[in-house]
Nucleic acid binder design. Structure first.
Length: 227
DNA sequence: GCGACAG
DNA sequence: ATCTTGTCGC
């Protein structure tokens, strides 16, 4: 992890940087999801009166459906929550947690948007660029774009559009529950992103690797000291 | 000016 | 994101 750029920027500088980095995103290289055995999932957990956060990075075996390795980290919060600038708040801590992993991985799944972002550089794109790995954005709610109603049936999906351009898909992982929003982070096509998400989806709304990362981050937040 | 607004 | 009790539905 050499260092693409610095993270201590003002919101205005951060937005400008996002626009520049967006040109580097690869959303055309095919990803053979059948050959993806190990997936890295990341998430962050924090307190209400947050001055610090807990980041988690977990490596999961897609075929065995089991957690192979977990790395967590407590870190002071250095950037405010600003819509569209989530990466500047969470990625620095996530990178440190990822550095501590000994296992390698074939693809990354992030809790947040990829290209379905105001400047086409959601947190999944940003992390994907730093890791230089196939990365997918998976968000629980929409940030950009519009879409037709998603059929109320497990596995249904509809295009997420923005100005006549498809930026992602709204995907119903489970009937009678709100759909999730999938978009390309880096080094894969949208169809591959959806394909991989389907492979890590069980009977729940949120794919299990993301849940695992969420649980690990949460556990780290509750059982550790500020250091 | 008004509404929207990942985690 | 997180704080919370009960409550609705499979």
């Amino acid at each position: 992890m050499s260092g693409l750029h610095r993270w201590d920027l003002t919101p205005a500088e951060a937005r400008e940087l996002q626009t520049e980095l967006a040109e580097k995103i690869d959303s055309t290289t095919p990803l053979d999801t059948q050959s993806v055995h190990r997936v890295l999932a990341v998430d962050v957990s924090m307190n209400r009166f947050a001055t610090w956060l807990a980041a988690a990075a977990v490596v999961c075996d897609v075929h065995e459906k089991m957690l192979l390795e977990s790395s967590t980290l407590i870190q002071p919060i250095r950037f405010p929550y600003v819509t569209g600038l989530l990466a500047f708040r969470e990625v620095p801590a996530l990178l440190k947690a990822i550095e501590r992993l000994s296992q390698d991985f074939d693809a990354v799944v992030v809790d947040g948007q990829g290209l379905a972002h105001p400047r086409s550089l959601g947190i999944a794109c940003h992390l994907g660029l730093w890791l230089d790995k196939p990365t997918i954005g998976l968000a629980k709610t929409k940030l950009s774009g519009t879409h037709e109603p998603v059929p109320n049936k497990t596995g249904a999906s509809v295009p997420l559009m923005l100005d006549d351009r498809q930026i992602g898909v709204a995907y119903r992982t489970k009937a009678k529950t709100a759909p999730i929003f999938i978009s390309v982070g880096h080094k894969c096509r949208l169809e591959d992103a959806l394909s991989l998400v389907k492979r890590i989806t069980d009977n729940r709304r949120i794919p299990w690797p993301i849940r695992a990362a969420h649980d690990e981050a949460n556990a780290a937040r509750c059982g550790k000291r500020i250091t």
